[in-house]
């Protein structure tokens, strides 16, 4: 205790002038021009505490800030992936499958190759019966077939996830690619659902490639 006793509550005695307070503390900040540099390194414990708080803050933000997404309201929600955020458009998906699997024979423009591979554009097989079309895509087609009045006789391999298939496309990809070809190039048939493909897949199992004659017995 260096100050004078301050027992009278009616007045608080001060022991130093304002100037003395300012000057003495200014020296502690080490900014006095006539002083040698008195800047001290941050005492280590305070440095550690401050760093610790910043480290905690950064970690906590990384974990619970909801990726700073204005649409995330639950801080524990996992990061939304592109697929989960917006389910892929079946047309876009079908287009990709078509480009990798079908376009080699049926061509990117869907016209096929005359005499070798039948066209899909305005083909009665494509825009017609769903039952027949799904079976062709799942299990393949062999033997003679008439498309838009032209005869073809070649072998279309199975594309579905069936025995002997080189492509193993899942039912939803089959549905997507069929939906795609039924609305592309001026075709105007309705979409094929994954459920419908799965139903036929379950009914026919690992059927061998179909013939046109077999398919024509179906609705």
């Amino acid at each position: 205790m260096n100050g004078p006793s301050n027992s009278d509550p009616r007045i608080d005695q001060a022991v130093v002038t304002d100037d003395a307070v300012v000057v003495a503390h200014e020296k502690l900040l080490g900014k006095q021009p006539d002083e040698k540099a008195r800047y001290r390194l941050l005492p280590l414990n305070l440095l550690f505490i401050f760093s610790g708080l910043i480290f905690f803050g950064a970690t906590y933000l990384g974990r619970y800030a909801g990726y700073f997404d204005p649409k995330v309201f639950d801080e524990t929600a996992p990061k939304a992936t592109a697929a989960a955020a917006a389910p892929e458009d079946p047309i876009e998906k079908g287009k990709k499958v078509y480009a990798t699997v079908c376009a080699a024979c049926h061509q990117a423009n869907g016209m096929g190759l005359p005499g070798a591979f039948p066209p899909l554009v305005e083909s009665e097989w494509v825009v017609g019966s769903e039952e027949r079309l799904i079976r062709i895509a799942l299990h393949g087609l062999q033997g003679p077939v008439k498309v838009k009045g032209a005869d073809f006789n070649s072998m279309m391999p199975a594309a579905g996830r069936v025995a002997g298939s080189g492509f193993n496309l899942s039912d939803d990809r089959i549905a997507a690619v069929l939906t795609y070809v039924r609305q592309e190039w001026g075709n105007k048939a309705g979409p094929i659902t994954t459920e419908k493909v799965a139903e036929i897949h379950g009914k026919e199992g690992d059927h061998k490639p179909w013939t046109a004659a077999e398919l024509e017995k179906l609705p």
């Binding site: 708080l53 803050g57 933000l61 619970y64 800030a65 909801g66 995330v72 309201f73």
Partner: peptide, 14 residues
């Protein structure tokens, strides 16, 4: 958004 509250919690600690 969740980040508004999370930033506030961190700021409270700082």
């Amino acid at each position: 958004p969740a980040w508004i509250s999370t930033v506030a919690i961190v700021a409270g600690m700082l």
